[in-house]
């Protein structure tokens, strides 16, 4: 005999109310991160020793700007998902947990937007 209601069985979303969605998105972004991070390191290394003009031209060029926008989307979403799991594992007081979860959301949004804005500005010019 199961204690689960028929409705909860049909929905199949478990106690987190979102099923495997969080897990799955962590994997999607993890897979995307592999090529993105290799290219990220390559671009940074190739810009070593550059000055403001040359680095702006490099990061702002269409291909690299698009690459960096993708990096920001994937990495920021991935780290946001990951940090939420860490918070849920270690922060047990209900109040503090909510504060941390909110902080994580705000941090990710601010960081992501600041990064995306900078890339666009570099690309479209001042």
């Amino acid at each position: 005999m199961s204690l689960r209601t028929p409705m909860s069985k049909v929905r199949g979303l478990g106690s987190a109310k979102s099923g495997a969605e969080h897990f799955w998105r962590q994997r999607v972004t993890a897979i995307a991160n592999i090529p993105l991070m290799i290219l990220f390191v390559a671009v940074l290394v190739s810009n070593l020793g550059g000055n403001h003009a040359s680095v702006t031209a490099s990061i702002g060029s269409p291909m690299i700007a698009i690459l960096f926008l993708l990096i920001i989307c994937s990495a920021v979403y991935h780290m946001y998902l990951g940090m939420q799991v860490i918070i849920e594992d270690y922060v047990h007081g209900e109040g503090l947990k909510i504060v941390c979860i909110l902080g994580n959301i705000f941090f990710a949004v601010v960081i992501g937007l600041a990064g995306a804005f900078s890339i666009l500005k570099l690309s479209f010019g001042s």
Partner: peptide, 23 residues
Amino acid sequence: TGAALYFGTLLVIWWLVALAAGP
């Protein structure tokens, strides 16, 4: 390392914002 990279992202974005802000 995941948690360290989380805060490391702040440095990456700082660098990008500084680049966009000017020489």
